[in-house]
């Protein structure tokens, strides 16, 4: 507990030189889906380490296994072979201990619950006190800018607002790890920019580890401390790039030289491997 406290404090003072503990470690992990016309190598020999407090993006064309890898970490899929540790335990134990919050591509709000009760769902399940629930919901709905909409039902909200509500729902459990599967994929560019900046702010504020699946190079560069470039057939990691940009960025970073250099590096990594054909 004391160690964790020091870590958070040091995170506030220094930019990236504080001691980080390992959040995810993946060793030689493979996942084969059986299918009627042969096996599909969804993931092949994945090796990856993610440190606590990092913002890591998985990027690659469709079919490269980025979502599958995220689902394996979340214990939504089981690896065929290889090792995986999430916060030092197995993925299943991490799930059973409710270590992570998962944000799906679609908001997935329950249509019969209003926004407040949707956010309460994971806390009801983990049997937290109703005072604590109210406190958390108020805090995170405010953070995503939905405090005025707390008693609306999902169908009364726009897609972007629904997705923000689903992020608030994931944050309410206060998980150490946030797994996000193209959460802004369905949003228009303006909303998406806004959500990206909001997410960076929330990440900086809460010191969580974020794993973020995207197929937008610009989004990956804007958000991440590390970018994992993936390629399909078989799904594999071709490069892990550490971002030279500061941890907390603004949209203006997109006009900087370093931003474009990094984007070009990702693009060439994808092209080198004929990842896009």
């Amino acid at each position: 507990m004391l160690a964790a406290q020091t870590e958070i404090e040091s995170a506030h003072t220094s930019d990236k030189t504080y001691p980080q503990r390992e959040m995810i470690s993946v060793e030689d992990l493979s996942l084969i889906f059986p299918s009627p016309d042969g096996e599909v190598n969804a993931l092949s020999n994945i090796n990856l380490n993610i440190k606590q407090g990092d913002f890591v993006s998985f990027i690659g064309p469709s079919g490269c296994g980025k979502t599958t890898l995220l689902r394996v970490i979340a214990d939504l899929e089981k690896a065929t072979s290889g090792g995986l540790k999430v916060n030092g335990t197995s993925a299943e134990d991490a799930r059973l201990n409710r270590l992570y919050g998962y944000v799906f591509q679609a908001p997935g709000l329950l249509p019969w619950r209003n926004i407040r009760d949707n956010c309460a769902l994971p806390m009801e399940i983990s049997a937290q006190s109703s005072e604590h629930q109210t406190k958390q919901i108020d805090k995170y709905l405010k953070m995503v800018g939905l405090q005025e909409f707390h008693n609306k039902f999902p169908w009364q909200l726009s897609g972007g607002m629904q997705q923000r509500a689903s992020i608030a729902r994931a944050l309410c459990l206060n998980p150490d790890l946030l797994l996000m599967d193209e959460p802004f994929g369905a949003l228009d560019e303006i909303t998406r920019d806004h959500m990206n900046i909001e997410l960076l702010r929330i990440w900086a504020e809460t010191q969580k580890t974020v794993i973020f699946v995207t197929h937008s190079i610009a989004e990956a560069v804007l958000l991440s401390t590390h970018i994992v470039v993936m390629s399909p057939r078989p799904g594999r990691i071709i490069k892990v790039i550490e971002s030279p940009l500061p941890r907390l960025k603004t949209l203006a970073v997109r006009d900087q030289e370093a931003f474009h250099t990094l984007a070009a590096e990702i693009r060439s990594a994808l092209a080198d491997e004929h990842a896009i054909d």
Binding site: R95, L96, R98, P122, E124, I125
Partner: peptide, 15 residues
């Protein structure tokens, strides 16, 4: 999607 969500919350069958 909702079922998977409940799974990530480690919800019991009753829940």
């Amino acid at each position: 999607l909702h079922e998977e969500l409940m799974y990530t919350y480690n919800a019991s069958a009753k829940q």
